[in-house]
Nucleic acid binder design. Structure first.
Lengths: 240, 240
DNA sequence: ACCTGAACACCGTTCAAGT
DNA sequence: ACCTGAACACCGTTCAAGT
């Protein structure tokens, strides 16, 4: 915190614009207020600059969102390599946990990783960059997978990750950009109904009885169980 | 096609506005040009009316999108009941196939079913309305599931559907609203590179070798395999 | 070199006014 | 009752102009 620092750490007037700073601010804004609220103009405001200045570093809003998605996958390969896993099971488990960690750290941005079209049609979210796919396929082949088995595993693995994690983060964000309830212009003698809770629930005794259970969060255990089941299934096809 | 018809089937000037007609036109527009292009103003144009007229029938764009999602699940319960399945395996299989059919019929709209926040936090896409969840839980309990087992099955089943179908329709839409490639202002002596194909691919020998395999579509078989595996897994926990 | 001001072509939405 | 015109407060994006 020496005053000699080129006002790098000053919060009043940030140092200078750069693609990295814009992407970081974009991600922060998304997590704070939701994707829709992350606007070129609001992002400019966050960075103490007019919106038009951003176009020196990103070619548009779409490019920025793409860069945010890429930044979420940044460093994944390095961390996976550092783990030095010895079996393919251990390898896939490590990748799965890394991705889950990322998703939980950025629950609002994670759906972008899934829903934005990857660069090539054969890339599957959330493992949607070539380097990561290469690493995964190479590792599986090293461990004795045939090409077909490696590709099938890539597809099943990505489907599992998307299904588990998208629904898990969905319960965790719930509504980052709060939605106002619009008044329904119905007759005034019907009393307010807070949400769905009282509306259809009379016709749904099982839902009522299991509502607590439905709300309970066992997502970690479910993730682990599903992952093990997937690995077992792969194991059976690979040693048939 | 008798001229006595109250110009119901005329294409030149459609009969009258109604919520149903708006929702149908909205879905059609989404499938034709993508969600972003489905704008209140363009939808008015499609219906031969000013955008402001729509607000008599939908409270806003969000309400319209919500109604489109609901319309996609319409009739699902009735069709499932009509099938009169005898085992819970057959039941879940039938539901799964119905949902897959819907997803493939509306590949551009299906991501909305997944990504929009359901009415209650314990509802999980794509089985996101109470009546459907009630039906599923009731059926499983009839077949001998405990409450816990029914809820666990609901969660695993929805995760499976989301993961499989979201990635399947993703490969099938690819870019409904075509994205223009922005010129990169780099030096002119570097020749054009069509897409990712040539960029990083030098460093990715496994990807190159398996590229055809990665592009091949076996989604139906993968869906069936994954579904059977899931049912087996449930079967094991239910008869432990 | 880096940022700004002004402008353009869009949005969603409200509301008084028309028929 | 049903739709329209005009208006408001926003967007993303371009481009000449400032420093």
């Amino acid at each position: 915190m020496s005053p000699e620092e080129p006002d790098e750490a000053r919060s009043t007037r940030p140092p200078r614009l750069s693609r990295q700073r814009i992407v970081d601010a974009g991600l922060a804004s998304i997590e704070a207020h939701g994707v829709d609220q992350m606007t070129m103009r609001s992002l400019g405001r966050d960075l103490g600059v007019e919106a038009m200045a951003l176009y020196r570093y990103v070619s548009g809003r779409e490019d920025l969102l793409e860069a945010v998605v890429e930044s979420l996958l940044d460093g994944l390969i390095k961390r996976v390599e550092a783990a030095e896993t010895t079996s393919w099971q251990e390898y896939l488990q490590h990748v799965a946990h890394e991705i889950r960690h990322m998703a939980l750290a950025h629950p609002t941005a994670f759906p972008l990783v899934v829903s934005r079209h990857p660069a090539a049609p054969w890339l599957r979210p959330p493992l949607r960059d070539i380097a990561m796919v290469e690493h995964l396929l190479a590792t599986l082949c090293e461990r004795g997978f045939s090409d077909d088995q490696a590709v099938d595993t890539y597809k099943a693995f990505t489907s599992f990750l998307v299904g588990s994690l998208l629904l898990e983060v969905s319960t965790k964000t719930e509504n980052v950009a709060a939605v106002e309830e619009p008044m329904n212009e119905g007759s005034a003698d019907i009393p307010e109904q807070d949400t769905v809770e009282d509306v259809d629930l009379g016709q749904a005794p099982h839902v009522v009885r299991m509502r607590d259970r439905l709300s309970q969060d066992h997502s970690e255990a479910e993730f682990e169980t599903g992952l093990e089941s997937l690995l077992n299934r792969i194991e059976n096809t690979v040693s048939h």
